[in-house]
């Protein structure tokens, strides 16, 4: 087990984490490149910047949604906060980074981390429940939508057990192994699944606007490409 654990925290982690970073950077890069290309070709290059900034902020800080759809929005916000804050600001994780690459940053108290960890698990369960309960989401959901929520909860469940050995009925190293590997798997899946939205979200409102900014003469150029210039309506 020990050797496996070393492998999971060592090479496997390095690979998955780099894969995630490079993958997300690539997504962002490709999107920015496409945005620039689209704008360069656009007949109309003026953009309603204030509206876009406003929409972007609304979705990064969805206070307004909270008022309209309190249950779902609250669950979703808490879930996102918990799963972002804990892995990054847990003292134990920071210590690992410090040992490996020599950088560190302020940590949150472990008690808070505990609360957020429980919150992450509870809200993940809540999101699954709401997914199943509402007819529209039930219809839209694919199996992987549920699977990914379970996968996201897994490192939190196991992390909690690792932090509280007294409560852990299982073998410590096995649980730690599952903890690390589920984390690795999430990193790996980030650029390959809808988790990509973590990187693309800030740009989506811009994209929605620029989507309507087609190139000059684009209609007739498509017509020409299809050999339909002379075709009657």
């Amino acid at each position: 087990m020990h050797a496996w654990l070393e492998w999971a925290r060592g090479p496997a982690f390095v690979f998955c984490f780099s894969f995630m970073l490079l993958g997300l950077v690539r997504h962002v890069g490709v999107t920015i490149w496409e945005i620039r290309r689209t704008l360069r070709r656009a007949g109309d290059r003026s953009l309603p910047l204030t509206a876009i900034v406003k929409a972007t902020l609304t979705w990064l800080l969805p206070a307004d949604r909270l008022r309209r759809e309190p249950l779902f929005t609250a669950t979703s916000i808490l879930f996102h906060v918990a799963i972002l804050v804990v892995p990054i600001f847990l003292a134990g994780h920071i210590a690992l980074w410090a040992r490996a690459v020599g950088v560190s940053w302020p940590a949150i108290p472990n008690a808070l981390a505990d609360v957020l960890t429980i919150l992450a698990v509870v809200t993940a369960a809540g999101l699954i429940a709401q997914r199943l309960a509402a007819r529209a989401t039930r219809a839209l959901s694919k199996p992987q939508d549920h699977a990914i929520l379970i996968l996201l909860a897994l490192p939190f469940v196991t992390g909690f057990l690792v932090m509280h050995p007294g409560l852990n009925p299982f073998d410590y190293e096995s649980v730690l192994f599952v903890h690390v590997m589920s984390g690795n798997l999430i990193f790996l899946l980030m650029p390959l699944t809808k988790l990509t939205h973590a990187a693309l979200l800030p740009g989506t409102q811009v994209v929605a606007e620029i989507g309507w900014h087609w190139p000059k003469d684009s209609g007739s150029r498509v017509g020409a490409a299809l050999g339909k210039e002379e075709e009657p309506v």
């Binding site: 999107t31 496409e34 689209t38 219809a139 990509t196 989506t204 620029i210 190139p215």
Partner: peptide, 20 residues
């Protein structure tokens, strides 16, 4: 010849099927 790639590309990668 037009520029629908950008939204199609981003939407098809980022849609989270949340049902909102």
């Amino acid at each position: 010849h037009s520029s629908y790639n950008l939204p199609l590309d981003v939407y098809s990668r980022a849609s989270v099927r949340c049902g909102r």
